[in-house]
Amino acid sequence: MPVKEILGKMIEFDDDGHLKNLNEWNEEIAKELAKEEGIAELTDRHWLVINYMRQEYQKVGDAPSIRKLTKESGVDTKELYQLFPKGPAKKAAKIAGLPKPKGCI
């Protein structure tokens, strides 16, 4: 799925369906990406996770592990799975405009 139109803009995606160019990401696009993942509305708790992931990515170059995420963001494992059902790490990364996480944990 290389190019898709979101909010009137042509946006490029990689083969995993993640945003190709991080700089094209903004909060409005995140909301649209979330809808595609079945999350109708992004709450403050969603944003906490998304912003933490983006921060970590900028620092380390990869999305954080779930363990690190739950320890440092203040959102515990149970809540994380409620916020991003069916695959929190990948979904949150997708909505945050980051590539698919490389880690196994």
């Binding site: 695959g87 929190p88 990948k90 196994c104 944990i105």
Partner: peptide, 8 residues
């Protein structure tokens, strides 16, 4: 098991 849950 954990990896499975991460993938839904």
């Amino acid at each position: 098991a954990n990896g499975a849950r991460m993938e839904g």
